[in-house]
């Protein structure tokens, strides 16, 4: 495993009006590492993930992702950076209801100049890897929770990201389906060396990561 830092957050703080949600947090994630960010609901872990992934700008502090300081980047620069280097998996799947499974997977590629066939082939390959080959043309409304999350994982991988940020990826799933999704994430990490930062409130899921970072009241406690 390569030990280079791929993500570095330094003295990160985030304030919404009078409420400081993240308080002077510093952390690093090494390339190929699987890190879990664990803590109770409302402790600031999702906000920290947003800061580290470039979805949100910190009130204070600095984020270096893939050797680029993204702290002062504009909204559009951040969008392009996410498109090229970052994958996201959300708790509520966040699929576009009007698009089929493969179209949702290909969504990050829509603004990129490439043929429809290339997009389609990559999306189909990833869905097949997720054992979703039989549901490729289905709309999200016709998929189960586990299937939706598999589509979301495929979408997160479509741009060959340097790092995948997963926010409570099993939060909306029953335990059996959740375990299956975790198995996929673990396999991506172990077999493909995918760097991952996963937010969860479930200790047993966090335990499968290489390293666990605990948060409480906006601060890293361990």
């Amino acid at each position: 495993m390569n030990n280079a830092d791929i993500l570095m957050g330094t003295n990160l703080s985030k304030r919404f009006d009078n409420l400081e949600v993240v308080k002077d947090v510093s952390l690093t994630v090494k390339e190929g590492e699987f890190v879990s960010l664990v803590g109770k609901s409302g402790c600031g872990k999702t906000t920290l993930l947003s800061l580290l992934s470039g979805l949100e700008k910190p009130t204070k502090g600095k984020v270096i992702l893939n050797n680029k300081d993204i702290t002062g980047a504009s909204e559009d620069e951040l969008a392009l950076f996410r498109r090229d280097h970052v994958g996201f998996i959300f708790q509520s799947f966040n699929l576009i209801p009007t698009l089929s499974a493969w179209e949702n997977v290909a969504l990050p590629l829509f603004p990129i100049k490439m043929t429809g066939e290339q997009r389609s082939r990559r999306a189909h390959d990833l869905l097949n890897q997720m054992e979703m080959g039989h549901r490729i043309e289905h709309l999200p409304g016709a998929l189960s929770g586990g299937e939706k999350q598999r589509v979301a994982i495929a979408r997160a991988l479509i741009n060959n990201p340097k790092i995948v940020f997963a926010d409570e990826p099993t939060g909306n799933l029953d335990s059996v389906t959740g375990e299956a999704i975790m198995a996929i994430l673990n396999e991506l990490h172990k077999k493909k060396g995918m760097t991952m930062l996963m937010v969860t409130h479930a200790e047993e899921l966090a335990a499968s990561a290489d390293r666990v970072i605990r948060m409480k009241d906006g601060e890293v406690i361990a």
Binding site: E75, A79, L80, N94
Partner: peptide, 16 residues
């Protein structure tokens, strides 16, 4: 807005 948020999170610029 939800859809727009997803598109932007997935790397779509304002122009896209």
């Amino acid at each position: 807005s939800r859809e727009i948020g997803i598109l932007k999170a997935m790397g779509w610029t304002n122009s896209d």
